[in-house]
Design a protein around this nucleic acid. Structure first.
Lengths: 315, 315
DNA sequence: AATTATTACGTAATCATTTACCTAATTATT
DNA sequence: AATAATTAGGTAAATGATTACGTAATAATT
């Protein structure tokens, strides 16, 4: 049992915390019982709060204790039947009920205080005799979680993992279908398929690779989810084209990865110029190109009707 | 809220642990949900256990996870309706049911594992970036509690506190009733009141103090719960007598405290000899006298019929 | 072989909370 | 002044676990 929990480490912290908490609650209850005091551990925080500050409304107690207001109502009911606290309707606000320590509660305090000081001492002894102090660790964790809650942290790491997981691979014939699918998708979404598109996508080997170009693909979860091509325009001029990312995988910086990979490849093959043609409608794409170092240059005539902006990058 | 909890320190550890545990559980559930996985945080440990070891019986799971077997049944039911695990009656033992990972569960594992590794990493990051490591603190606490559970620790400290709390005070006239009451009680319980008893108890000033003796009382919880007297036998000889402890307060080392106090007093006043008369029937009393340094000497004639043993101590 | 004790596990009852919802009172807005 | 929004706090239902108990199977003992 402990083996498993220890082995699970940070994954099972929740369960271990709960078990430790249960142990505390149970020991407290047992101790009150043994000492002949009719008092429940779970009522402790509310009762203690009211000894420090009376009166308080139900909602105020709930907020200060970090529990729901029905929980306060239940605890208050319990403490009230035991006579340790009392409650009365507020004069100023008929919705409100003021909870406060009763006379009997005040009389019970010295006795309870004695028990509390015992539990406090025993607990402190246990905690402080360790190298890592649970109390301080708890407080540090609470602070950490106040900065960013656990769910956010999960998501952040998740996103990072997803991004890291994407792999850029070189073209191979079996990927022609993916290459075509991904590009047809975005072109059809925003524009119209043009003749040069069809040629490049349906027969990439003939129209891109054989003339000295390159195609790269992004793989995630075992699927091809992104693509880009370097098209040889001769004389050391290359065009970055056919950039596409599966819609379901957008936001994972796949486009950026493809871009950077293509730029590096262009450098490796000693390209003199790398440019691209795009459309100002594609704001996020333009943004991406800028982020990796492309800048706008004068637009020249392009084989694509949709191209209204030309960008280049220094190699 | 945090203020109060922090202020309460070791007293509110239970509640704080619970809150932290809830935060973990909630974040986990949310994360699974967001990732589109139909899996509950609370089922995690059981599912994980079964991925490590299959098949296991219900009881084995309960024991390994440190939860009740009905809890395992509920979790297993949940996991089974989701198809992640399966169960079958044991052939060898018709009472037993074997739980094991199903094919679907095995297929779901890579996906789950991915999520787990994210949670693990995020959690580990949070924990390890603190000076006091919650995980290690938890483990140290678990070890500490395995040695001695919390309730025992409470009781131990409580007992120590109770013992410390007892106060030895000098006689004053208003305590005559207590002095008499405590002594009449034990004498009547084990023997018969004799004449010298009545004299000493009913008129201690005349029969003990005025002749140069002393009376000490033990006070706890604002009540007189024990008594002892030094009786001046003349010539530097003193008798330790009229030792009595309220039955309800026995076990708090009150007798020992009274004895030690009386011995010290005897030394202070330069007594030459300190002795006492008792009865071998009073085993715990004899034990006590021995523990503080009394040893048996030859029994001499005593004014008390019940005295069948005489003890003395070196001053 | 018969009886007793133990084990495995299922169900029911219980407990402590939380969420969801409701009502009534108060405050803000038009 | 009328209407809408917010707040206080109550109840009911749901959740998730535990304890208590029942039943049947198995093991141990006489």
């Amino acid at each position: 049992m402990t083996d498993l929990m220890t082995q699970l480490g940070p994954l099972a912290v929740g369960s271990r915390l709960k078990r430790m908490s249960d142990a505390y609650m149970k020991a407290g209850t047992l101790f009150y019982e043994k000492a002949g005091v009719d008092f429940e551990t779970r009522s402790f925080t509310l009762f203690y709060l009211l000894t420090q500050q009376s009166p308080l409304s139900v909602m105020e107690c709930a907020e200060k204790l970090g529990i729901s207001h029905p929980a306060v109502i239940a605890l208050a009911r319990d403490l009230e039947t035991k006579g340790l606290i009392q409650s009365e309707k507020s004069d100023a606000d008929a919705r409100k009920r003021w909870l406060s320590i009763s006379e009997k509660g005040r009389q019970a305090m010295p006795n309870l205080q004695k028990l509390w000081s015992v539990m406090e001492e025993a607990s402190a002894q246990l905690i402080q005799s360790r190298r890592h102090n649970l109390l301080i660790a708890l407080e540090e964790m609470e602070n950490g979680l106040a900065e960013q809650d656990l769910f956010d942290r999960f998501q952040q790491v998740y996103k990072k993992k997803l991004i890291e997981e994407v792999e850029i691979i070189d073209y191979a014939p079996q990927y022609q279908g993916d290459f075509a699918r991904l590009n047809y998708a975005w072109i059809e979404k925003f524009f119209k398929i043009e003749d040069p598109d069809r040629k490049a996508l349906d027969a990439p080997e003939e129209h891109i690779l054989d003339p000295g170009g390159y195609i790269f693909l992004a793989r995630a979860d075992g699927q091809i989810v992104g693509a880009a091509a370097l098209i040889n325009e001769g004389d050391g001029h290359y065009e970055l084209a056919k950039m596409a990312v599966d819609e379901a995988y957008q936001g994972r910086q796949i486009g950026k990865k493809l871009c950077l990979y293509a730029i590096e490849q262009a450098r490796n093959i000693g390209a003199r110029e790398l440019f691209l043609g795009s459309n100002t409608k594609l704001v996020p794409a333009i943004q991406l190109y800028k982020s990796v170092g492309f800048y706008q240059v004068e637009n020249r005539n392009s084989p694509y009707a949709r191209a209204n902006i030309r960008m280049a990058i220094d190699l």
